Amino acid sequence: MSLLAHEVSWSVGGRLVVDGVSLAPAPGTTTGLLGPNGSGKSSLLRLLAGLRPADAGVVELDGVPLARVGRRTAARRIAVVEQNAATETDLTVAEVAGLGRIPHRRAWSAPSRSDEDAVERALERVGLADRAEEAWHTLSGGERQRAQIARALAQGPHELLLDEPTNHLDIAHQLDVLDLVARLEVTAVVALHDLNLAAMFCDRLLVLKDGRAVAAGTPAEVITEDLIAEVYGVRAEVEPRGPEARPSVRFLPGRPV
Results as ranks from 00 to 15, higher is better:
93 V>P: 00
253 P>A: 02
234 V>A: 10
58 V>H: 09
195 L>Q: 02
104 H>A: 14
174 Q>D: 04
188 A>V: 01
245 A>M: 01
19 D>P: 11
87 T>Y: 11
89 T>W: 04
77 R>D: 12
231 V>M: 06
125 R>C: 01
101 R>F: 07
182 A>K: 15
84 N>C: 00
118 A>H: 02
178 L>K: 04
254 G>V: 01
67 A>S: 14
166 T>R: 08
160 L>E: 08
110 A>F: 06
132 A>N: 01
215 A>D: 08
72 R>V: 09
240 P>Y: 03
213 A>N: 03
244 E>G: 06
213 A>E: 15
219 P>T: 07
205 L>A: 06
11 S>Y: 05
13 G>K: 01
206 L>Y: 02
120 E>K: 11
64 V>S: 07
245 A>D: 08
91 L>C: 06
207 V>A: 13
195 L>V: 10
151 R>G: 00
97 A>H: 10
67 A>E: 14
248 S>N: 12
221 E>K: 09
41 K>M: 04
157 P>G: 14
57 G>S: 03
191 A>L: 04
229 A>R: 03
77 R>N: 07
141 G>H: 01
125 R>I: 03
253 P>H: 05
76 R>Y: 08
154 A>P: 09
103 P>D: 11
95 E>Y: 08
218 T>H: 00
167 N>G: 01
178 L>H: 09
142 G>V: 06
103 P>T: 04
24 A>P: 00
191 A>T: 09
5 A>Q: 06
163 D>F: 11
82 E>D: 14
217 G>N: 10
129 A>S: 15
129 A>M: 01
41 K>H: 13
214 V>E: 08
66 L>N: 06
80 V>C: 08
250 R>F: 12
111 P>R: 00
120 E>F: 00
99 L>N: 10
154 A>W: 07
107 A>H: 13
32 G>R: 10
225 E>S: 10
215 A>H: 12
185 E>A: 15
170 D>K: 02
199 A>T: 07
47 L>F: 07
195 L>E: 02
229 A>F: 08
208 L>E: 09
72 R>I: 06
151 R>P: 01
8 V>R: 08
241 R>G: 13
200 M>G: 00
122 A>Y: 09
216 A>P: 00
235 R>N: 04
178 L>E: 00
162 L>A: 14
209 K>L: 13
193 H>F: 11
1 M>G: 13
126 V>Q: 06
218 T>N: 04
85 A>F: 04
157 P>E: 05
148 Q>F: 12
117 D>G: 03
108 W>D: 01
95 E>T: 05
121 R>S: 09
55 D>M: 05
33 L>G: 08
71 R>G: 15
